[in-house]
Amino acid sequence: MTAPVAMHMSDGLLNTPTTVLFLGVAVIGVAIAAVKARADLDDRAAPMAGLVAAFVFATQMLNFPVLAGVSGHLLGGALAAILVGPWVGALCVSIVLVVQALLFSDGGLTALGANITNMALIGTAAGFGVALALKRLAARGKAGLVAVSFIAALVNTVVAALGFVIEFAIGGDAAFSLGTVAATVLGVHVLIGIGEGVITALTVGAVAAARPDLVYLLRGTAKPLELRGKAAA
């Protein structure tokens, strides 16, 4: 039995200017998310959002096998965004990454900016973008919502991995072939994205079955309103 492995980018993989650049990107991105998140947070949404962050932390510990000798784990941006909205969702994943870096020495401190940029900002934005584009399908019923969650999460994972590739292209060790790094990182993350898609689909499906009114993506669609009406009656 071994403890979960470190899961995020360590310090030292990117040069200092690149590290500083993405710390700046992360600070600006998180600040914008914090301002925008206010509109989606009230007395009822705040506890749910806190739990989504805790759930993402828990689920990130569950590395699953993707290839011989290679594992993957949930990133959680699409999951969080579908449940509590993109701005709150980005904050949820950011908080998870900060807790992991400070409490569990998982993910470097100077690399925190790059890790937040990839997993909390870019991945979440891409995943939620896909979910929003497919909102009509998601609102059609459980199968639609589950399918949209799967696709959004898959895209979230691959785009977050693309973030690493871009950062490595800007400020990684040039002694290593960018093409090889890109092919490996993106190839493996397509497989991880399938796992992320399955976990996200199961989770969103379960929440929607119990409390469709708590699924952010379904806000303003007819179905949860009907159910909410029934519950209130």
Binding site: V5, L62, V70, V185, V188
Partner: peptide, 19 residues
């Protein structure tokens, strides 16, 4: 999940570490 199921997690390097 964090307290129990995590013991069954795959301890191989994740995708990023693998790369």
């Amino acid at each position: 999940l964090a307290g129990g199921v995590s013991y069954f997690a795959d301890s191989n390097p994740d995708g990023l570490d693998h790369a």
